[in-house]
Simulated assay, not measured.
Amino acid sequence: MTIQGILKNLSAEDLELTKQYYKSIQPFAVQPSDTCEFDAEFPAEDGERIIAEITLDENAEIEDLYCTCRAGGLCVHLAAMMCDMEERKTVFFSGRMQE
């Protein structure tokens, strides 16, 4: 599934919670990647950093999701990354970097 597909399938409530969290962590940006492995760091309640990673295949389909928050599944950190990547067209720019 693609990032767009996952975001589209979120419930209205989950999407709203994700957008609120995304707003609260600004400035935040997932940088383009020439390897299609996108990393991000988030602040944690205990002062530690939460590390999240989204890996896409050559067709921009999600290959792997990982986050150190231990929430499991699609946590708010991964969802916030996806919102940012969609907003900033990160996957498009990463594809251009590979050409």
Rank of each mutant, 00 (worst) to 15 (best):
L15P: 00
L17N: 14
T55M: 09
A52N: 03
T2Q: 02
Q26S: 12
A60G: 01
D34M: 13
A79N: 08
E37M: 10
Q98S: 12
V91C: 06
M1C: 07
E37G: 11
E13Q: 13
I3Q: 00
A80L: 04
E16L: 07
T18C: 15
D14M: 05
E63G: 11
M85E: 03
E45S: 13
E13C: 08
F93N: 12
Q4K: 12
D34V: 11
Y21C: 11
D14V: 06
A29Q: 15
I50Y: 06
Q20W: 01
K89L: 12
L15Q: 01
A71I: 09
A52G: 08
D57E: 07
N59D: 11
H77P: 00
C83M: 13
A44C: 08
F93V: 08
D39H: 10
K8V: 08
Y22W: 14
T55W: 07
M85Y: 03
D46W: 00
A29D: 12
E61D: 14
E37S: 12
L65F: 09
E45L: 09
N9A: 13
V91S: 05
I25A: 08
A12N: 13
I3A: 02
D57P: 00
T35W: 03
I51Y: 10
Q4E: 08
E37W: 04
D84E: 03
F28D: 09
K23V: 15
I51R: 14
T68D: 05
E58H: 01
N9K: 15
C83W: 01
L10P: 01
F92A: 15
Y21T: 13
F93L: 14
M82K: 03
C69N: 04
A60H: 07
Q98H: 11
L17E: 13
T2C: 02
F38W: 08
Q4L: 09
E63P: 06
Q98M: 12
M82D: 05
L56M: 08
T2A: 05
P27C: 09
L65K: 07
R70W: 02
L65A: 14
S33C: 05
C69M: 05
L7Y: 04
F28L: 10
C69H: 03
A44Y: 02
C69Y: 00
M85K: 03
A79L: 11
Y66K: 08
A79K: 05
F38M: 13
T55S: 07
T18F: 02
F93D: 12
H77T: 03
P43H: 05
S33W: 03
P27H: 02
